[in-house]
């Protein structure tokens, strides 16, 4: 479980997150949704410690992450996997080296065992035989899969995904969404996905938090979101022509 308590964050005097409190449950896919510029990414980065909140606290189970020092945070970070919007694979390393890096740095496993683990993770994301390729040789969907493989290589307890299907076609998006959902349930981890893709919301959104202008605008499930009485949320959810027609039906 990850809990944000009264998180506030400003940049150059501009408040980006305003008193956000939310709890993300273990074993289900928690979605943070909202318009571009609403503060979703800042919230996600604050949760993982890339941004320090001006006030408030982030709890990982019973540990107050915000109050911890570098060394204590490092211990928690080994339990964190993160998938960035652009994949954030190291350009100068092959797929195998990218996935193996956390193993190299934080385990004393023999090389053969590490390779086996890399192959397992690649198999898990259905991307066999890509070990020797460089990120520049991969398609958008493949990059996301490698990023997922790297994120799960150390068996994380917490998985963060920043717009995991941005820039992907609808079919590949569904594949990536389902993969994250499967992994979440298989390993019973706390997964937080940052997205503005309504397909993702309807496919895998078990708990949804809507962020509007830096504040928590709404919270609920994918079944509840279609009937929510929140104008800003409705404008967001039913923005596309297809969603409007679906609502009319």
């Amino acid at each position: 479980m990850i809990r944000a308590e009264h998180i506030t964050k400003s940049f150059d005097g501009r408040t980006v997150l305003d008193d956000i409190s939310v709890e993300f449950r273990t074993g289900c896919t928690n979605l943070i949704i909202g318009r571009s510029g609403s503060g979703k990414t800042v919230l996600l980065k604050t949760l993982v410690g890339l941004h320090e909140p001006d006030s408030g606290a982030v709890w990982y189970d019973d540990r107050n992450f915000t109050a911890l020092g570098f060394r204590e945070r490092k211990a928690i970070r080994k339990d964190i996997g993160m998938i960035f919007q652009g994949g954030a694979l190291l350009d100068s390393s092959t797929v195998e080296e990218n996935i193996k890096l956390p193993l190299d740095l934080f385990t004393d496993q023999p090389e053969a065992e590490k390779r086996e683990r890399v192959d397992f993770c690649l198999h898990r994301v259905r991307l066999e035989k890509a070990n020797r390729l460089y990120p520049a040789e991969l398609s958008g969907g493949m990059i996301k899969r490698v990023a997922i493989a790297r994120a799960i290589v150390l068996n994380p307890r917490y998985l963060f995904c920043d717009e995991p299907n941005s820039g992907l076609d609808p079919q590949t998006s569904i594949v990536i969404d389902n993969l994250i959902h499967e992994i979440t349930q298989e390993y019973h981890i706390t997964t937080i996905i940052n997205t503005h893709d309504m397909n993702s919301v309807m496919e895998i959104g078990e708990q949804i938090v809507y962020i509007h202008e830096g504040r928590k605008g709404w919270e609920g499930t994918k079944e509840e979101i279609l009937h929510a009485e929140n104008k800003a949320l409705n404008d967001f959810v039913f923005a596309s022509a297809m969603a409007k027609r679906a609502r009319e039906w």
């Binding site: 980065k45 993982v48 890339l50 945070r73 490092k74 211990a75 970070r77 080994k78 964190i80 993160m82 960035f84 919007q85 652009g86 954030a88 694979l89 190291l90 350009d91 890096l101 956390p102 740095l105 934080f106 963060f160």
Partner: peptide
């Protein structure tokens, strides 16, 4: 391209 953020998240 957030590669440095990715390293930080790993605890590196």
């Amino acid at each position: 391209t957030e590669q440095i953020d990715a390293l930080e998240i790993m605890g590196v």
